[in-house]
């Protein structure tokens, strides 16, 4: 069970894997996630589903290996097995259940930041299969950190690239590119779906607000069980506490309290590491933009 059928390194510290999980593949829908565990003492790690094949019985995940637990996952080779692979969890994206003629009439823009391109892909692909044309922006730090660009090209109506250093596509942030598309290139959007780092989703939501464009974000909160039992993933949406695992992971970006969500993501970073990071930032005279000093 849960055998690694295929493994590929997409970029530095970003690995793609197809996992044998026929039941999960049969039930998976765009927008959902899985919980993965490696080893007897392994942590339960939520990961968004990147693709799935009902016929071949696999589910694809993309792992950014920055911590000890994610490194354990990417250390597995083809033929090895994950200890656990539970899902699909969370709710499918709203459009899966909406009347298709309404979805087709909608002008949608997907914004993927970093590994966020992985969970955006199955949504765009699913929509394409239903005959819905959507635009996509993929943002990355550098050209060599871009993932899923080729696959996305095949399913997106228009694909735009933004890199922080200008090594590919638009030189700048995804929010600047989105503004450029709307303000200068005559693009009109009724809905934006942003998936990526919390800070990017926050600024996408802030940017779309004055335009009145409905904005959906997918929250990668801390979770233990992923089924509503622990409440670690609590997030404030429209002033109410919601559980990202069972009520999300997708929410209205204009209603999410991102500052709280970012602070809660840091809950289990060790006290020392946090203190050290803040001290280093202050010393460098840098105003922390990702909420570490909160």
């Amino acid at each position: 069970m849960f055998k690694v059928l295929y493994k590929k390194e997409l970029a530095e510290n970003i690995t793609l894997m197809n996992i044998e999980a026929p039941r999960v593949a049969r039930s998976a829908k765009p927008g959902q996630f899985v919980i993965v565990r490696v080893g007897d003492e392994g942590e339960r790690i939520p990961l968004t589903i990147a693709d799935y094949s009902v016929d071949e019985g696999w589910v694809q995940i993309v792992i950014q290996s920055l911590g000890a637990s994610t490194r354990k996952i990417v250390a597995l080779e083809e033929g090895d097995s994950l200890t656990d692979f539970a899902g699909p969890l969370g709710n499918p994206s709203d459009f899966v259940k909406e009347p298709m003629e309404e979805v087709r009439a909608r002008k949608m823009l997907f914004i993927a930041g970093g590994v966020g391109a992985a969970p955006v892909y199955p949504q765009v692909k699913w929509l394409r299969e239903q005959g819905v044309e959507v635009d996509v922006i993929i943002g990355a730090k550098r050209k060599d950190m871009l993932i899923f660009a080729e696959q996305m090209e095949a399913v997106a109506s228009d694909l735009y690239i933004a890199t922080d250093d200008g090594s590919a596509g638009f030189h700048g942030l995804v929010t600047d590119l989105m503004k450029d598309l709307i303000d200068n290139q005559g693009k009109k959007y009724d809905q934006v779906v942003a998936i990526g780092p919390m800070i990017m989703m926050k600024f996408v939501a802030l940017t779309t607000k004055p335009y009145g464009i409905k904005t959906i974000v997918s929250l990668n909160s801390i979770m233990v069980d992923g089924t509503g039992m622990c409440g670690a993933c609590r997030v404030t949406v429209a002033g109410r506490t919601r559980f990202a695992c069972v009520e999300g992971p997708e929410f209205d970006g204009h209603e999410v309290d991102f500052d709280e969500a970012m602070r809660r993501q840091g809950m289990y970073k060790s006290q020392e590491a946090r203190a050290a990071a803040i001290a280093a930032e202050r010393e460098a005279g840098h105003k922390c933009r990702i909420g570490l000093d909160k």
């Binding site: 003492e41 637990s69 233990v224 622990c230 609590r234 404030t236 060790s270």
Partner: peptide, 28 residues
């Protein structure tokens, strides 16, 4: 929703199911 408020379910699941009290466990 401040950092440091948890449900007993979360706390006990980390301790019992994930054996977070054990140094060998990856769960904090």
């Amino acid at each position: 929703n401040l950092n440091g408020v948890v449900s007993a379910n979360e706390f006990l699941t980390r301790a019992n199911l994930m054996k977070a009290y054990d140094e060998a466990s990856d769960t904090p």
